[in-house]
Amino acid sequence: MKDAQAEHRLAVLLPYRPMQARMSVRIGPLAAAILCFCAIMAASTAWAQTGPAVLSPLQVIVKWSPLLLRGFAFNILISLLAMLLGTIAGLGLGLGLLSEFRPLATVSWLLTQFFRNAPWLVLLFFVMFLVPFQITLFKTTIPLPDWIKATVGFALPVMANVAEVVRGAVRSIPSTQWEAAESLSFTRRQTMWLIMLPQCIKRMLPPWMNVYALVAMSTVLASIVGVSEMLTLTAQVHAAEGGRPELFAPLYGFALLCFFLYCYPINLWTARLERRFRIR
């Protein structure tokens, strides 16, 4: 009777699920890219009024695209490094969250909450201004250029988000697995590393990729603190071309397009993985 009732309740409302999967069917990446590009071109029609001596917006983009794309590659590099750092640290923090040693769990929880809830830009300022430009370790001085500091700044929120992902994935594994492992006299650490984490990897992958897409898009914040990544270069290119106002839209549109072409496939892939793992 009690069970039957619970079953009826479940039947009433289906759980919330993110809808990215559906989008992929409705609008292909190519169609979206074309749409995006059309928007840029539409925005750059204002150029038509200016004289023939100056380059058209499209010509400007073509001319500077090697530099701009190099800047974009720098963004990707920063995002990958931040992800690597953040994932390693986040795995540790996530295990801390799951620790049975209360003080450790509490400290981990506080750190996670702090870095998850602070705005990314504020954390970036935090690292840029409070970490020295060089550190001395064992009498050798290691310089810390701005972009390394920025990477650390991005790694901090990644760490907190990855920690949440780890915690969520481990919690989602039925407790019977812990009991089964315990009955086979595995230690807690063995259970975690040999039984829980391998099962979690699949569950962690889609949210982890979501975090990555977030970092990739956040790397442009580095321009605010003076790292020469794509957005900084875009502003410089704009100045070099005489600061014509009609060039703003095409140039920033180009940046939008680059990020879109990079992030959208990741998003689609994540959605596909999510769908596949849900069915199993």
């Binding site: 442009v220 914040l221 605010i224 957005l231 703003f248 920033y252 879109f260």
Partner: peptide
């Protein structure tokens, strides 16, 4: 699709400077 997959900061620049 476009607004979810592009950096919000670039969106702001595109709107403020571009448009």
């Amino acid at each position: 699709v476009v607004f979810r997959n592009t950096p919000p900061l670039v969106q702001i620049f595109f709107f403020y400077f571009g448009l």
